[in-house]
Design a protein around this nucleic acid. Structure first.
Length: 205
DNA sequence: ATCAAGATTACCT
DNA sequence: GGTAATCTTGATA
């Protein structure tokens, strides 16, 4: 049903990949049943010329995965309590990543809700509050630094597409500055599906 | 050794 | 609209 995207898909230029990931599917087969969400919001981060990128000042223990080959997960811990998931881009020794900010829950929804309830302490989670933010997404899909550096795999976590499904039309894509950063706020490197109720913020739509 | 910042979220008025 | 929670990381001494 969801075919894994080939390795070459992740060799696209980072900004293009961030845009082309919209409408593709985040799939995790780590648990007993598959968890699937449609990617509706992404952000691009680049080593060169981007002060918001973790790799802007060079390689460190934390960001070294970004300097590795594309098609791996870069997951980091932040604010003392949250994780964010990226896909590594750019050839080896050059750092780049696409942050997955939001997905539309499609399969394994009750499990996704269960995971969110467990980790957020909330009493109730509606469908629009499952994965409409990078840290919420990691809670729902049970992703943490345990998976940092993990290679995408059809048996674990991967990005898929549906056969015969058309790419998102250019007109349906919104572009804006990235959210939650204090440097590089002028760069319009956030991409989202317009009018999709599962994006993290409803502004700029 | 110390310290400020952080690709966020939930809760408050 | 504002801010507490919570702790790893990277920078500076």
């Amino acid at each position: 049903m969801y075919r894994p995207l080939k390795k070459s898909f992740f060799h696209q230029e980072t900004l293009l990949l961030a845009r082309n990931l919209l409408g593709k599917y985040l799939i995790s087969k780590k648990g007993s049943l598959p968890l699937v969400g449609k990617i509706v919001e992404t952000e691009a981060y680049l080593q060169n010329g981007d002060p918001a990128c973790h790799a802007y000042k060079g390689k460190t223990r934390r960001n070294e995965v970004m300097f590795g080959p594309p098609g791996h997960l870069y997951i980091y811990f932040t604010y003392g309590m949250h994780f964010c998931m990226n896909l590594v881009t750019e050839p080896e020794n050059t750092a780049g990543a696409v942050l997955i900010r939001a997905v539309e829950p499609l399969e394994g929804v009750s499990e996704l809700i269960h995971n969110r309830l467990l980790r957020s302490g909330l009493k109730k989670i509606d469908n629009f509050n499952i994965a409409n933010g990078p840290a919420k997404l990691c809670q729902a899909f049970n992703l943490s630094t345990m998976e940092n550096g993990l290679k995408l795999s059809p048996n674990g976590v991967y990005i898929g597409y549906k056969l015969n499904e058309k790419d998102i039309d250019e007109k349906e894509i919104g572009i804006s500055p990235r959210i939650g950063i204090s440097a590089g706020i002028d760069l319009p490197w956030r991409f989202y599906i317009k009018n999709n109720p599962f994006v993290s913020k409803t502004t700029n739509q």
